[in-house]
Every structure is written in C-alpha cells, then in structure tokens.
C-alpha cells in the first residue's frame, strides 16, 4: 500500500481540476507544468524504475514478471498481427490508393504524433479514428475499433515508430486546451457502481495487485498499444482497453472513439511526452 504520496498528488490534481470545472474562465491551464508534475510524481514514487521503462506497463513494476516477459519477447505473440498489419497497410484499396496516401510520410514512423488536435475540425483525432476516416474517404467500410483488423494496422504503424518519443502538441487554441482539460477531468473522475476513476488504479495503485493482475502506471500507459493480451488470447486496441477498464468497474463504457475517449487519449498521451513508442506490446 502506498496511499500517501498518491494522495498528495491526487489532491494537487483535484485542486487543479476543481476550479477549472467550477469557473472555466478563471485560470489558464498549463499542460506543460502538468506533464512535468505528472512525470515527477512517478519518478519519485518509483525511483528504481528507469524513465524509458515506464512504457512496459506492469513489467516495469515487477522483477519476476519482467523475466517471464523477456523470455516471451523472443517469440512475440503479436508477431502474427504485425505481419497481417503490414500486408493490410500496403494492399491498395479498390480505388487503387493506399493508407500511405492518407498520412504524413506515407504513414511510416508517425505514431508518436497521434492523437493530434485538428484545428479545422476543432477536435482531437486519434490514429484509430484517422485510419477509419482514411478507409471511408476511399470508399471502404470502417473497421470495428475493438477488433483484430484495427489492432493489426495500429500494431504495424506503432512498430515503424518504435523508439520515437511521444510528441503530442497542444496548439495555443482554447479548444485544444479545453479538450486536454476534459480528458484530464475524465481521467480523475470517479464513476461506475464501484466508484473508481482511472487514477484510482493507474495513479494511486500501480505496481499493486488487483487479484492476480499487476496494475500498470499511467505514465507511458499508451506507448505500448496495441497489445497482445494472453487473457484475451488476442490483440487489443486503445479503444478496447478503455472500454474494458470502464466495464470492470461496472460502469457503462462509452462508444469507442467518442469525444470523451479521444480527449482522454489526448491527455494520457501528452503527459507521456518524451517516452518512446514501444508498441505493439505483449501483456499477461
């Protein structure tokens, strides 16, 4: 149990969130200072964990699990998805175009820049959303956000970006700041019959066991996505993980890629700026 350091951080965050909710016009949010406090909190809480290691989720927290994982990485369980994803990515649509036509740099090595704030639309665009928009713009049906095809595509795109640090930008646009603040508020708000916030598990209790599972720290929690989970015997996208975590607390999950989830992803990615993309990942 490590309640106290988490408490002071949570209290600080709540103090930041609360006035922002009560009086939107009051104080301009400062995401850069936020991210620094967030990262410092985890560094202080886990002085033995190397900074880049936070992207390894539960494995960064537990020596025994880490050994098992290193063995597993010799024959990574996501290999199949990765190969499928590469093939899908390169195969032209019926109209002859490819995914490469929809993305900067042909879609290679760009995972670390998603999600981004689209100033024309005034909303956050995630990689999963951009992939489906690309399909639809080219006359193809969108994929399910929680199934294998989407996981395969994002696995491949993450793989081509491995080692590149998250580089999420918040433009000086009140709408972008609002999106960030809403994501943050979602992350710290308790919900569901069990009354958990995301932070209850991933800020207050990383490294602790919830039944047999070791909780991943919120810092770097998206860097390894998508992940192969033995428990799922398959791959999972960010959308799948968010909805699963919401269901676990007997809450009602939102629609994948709803605005709330996109803002949440924006917040979580931004506060992990500087940590390398490591996806696709493998988890127990």
């Amino acid at each position: 149990m490590r309640i106290h350091p988490a408490l002071s951080f949570l209290a600080a965050v709540l103090a930041l969130v609360a006035p922002a909710v009560a009086a939107p016009a009051a104080e301009k949010p400062d995401p850069a200072a936020d991210a620094k406090a967030f990262q410092d909190f985890f560094r202080k809480k886990f002085p033995q964990v190397k900074f880049e290691d936070f992207v390894n989720g539960p494995y960064s927290m537990n020596e025994d699990m880490r050994k098992q994982w290193e063995e597993k990485e010799q024959f990574p369980p996501y290999e199949f998805a990765l190969e499928a994803g590469k093939e899908m990515f390169e195969k032209p649509f019926k109209n002859g175009k490819t995914y490469a036509d929809c993305f900067a740099n042909g879609g290679i090595g760009i995972r670390q820049t998603y999600p981004y704030f689209d100033d024309k639309e005034g909303k956050v665009v995630t990689l999963e959303l951009a992939l489906n928009r690309c399909r639809e713009a080219n006359g193809e049906a969108p994929y399910s956000y929680v199934k294998d095809e989407m996981a395969a595509l994002t696995a491949y795109m993450a793989y081509t970006s491995r080692g590149k640090p998250f580089d999420i930008k918040i433009p000086d646009d009140p709408r972008a700041l609002e999106a960030y603040e809403r994501g943050k508020e979602y992350f710290y708000t308790r919900r569901g019959q069990l009354n958990f916030s995301c932070a209850s598990c991933h800020v207050q209790n990383p490294g602790e066991r919830i039944r047999a599972e070791i909780l991943a720290p919120a810092l770097g929690i998206l860097n390894a996505m998508p992940i192969y989970r033995s428990e799922w015997s398959g791959m999972g996208t960010i959308s799948r993980r968010f909805t699963t975590c919401n269901s676990q607390i007997r809450g009602v999950p939102l629609e994948p890629q709803s605005e709330e989830y996109r803002d949440l992803e924006y917040y979580l990615s931004y506060v992990s700026n500087g940590l390398p993309i490591s996806g696709p990942g493998a988890r127990p």
């Binding site: 149990m1 602790e208 066991r209 919830i210 039944r211 047999a212």
Partner: peptide, 18 residues
Amino acid sequence: CLTCHQIKGGDLPGSIGP
C-alpha cells in the same frame, strides 16, 4: 474483497488494501 485484500482462506488476493 479478495480483489484488494489478503484474507485467511481466500486465493489470489490483490494488494491494494491491507
């Protein structure tokens, strides 16, 4: 309760609570 607490007679306890 075993999700978070070790309790005599229970398997696979978590460690979130005492």
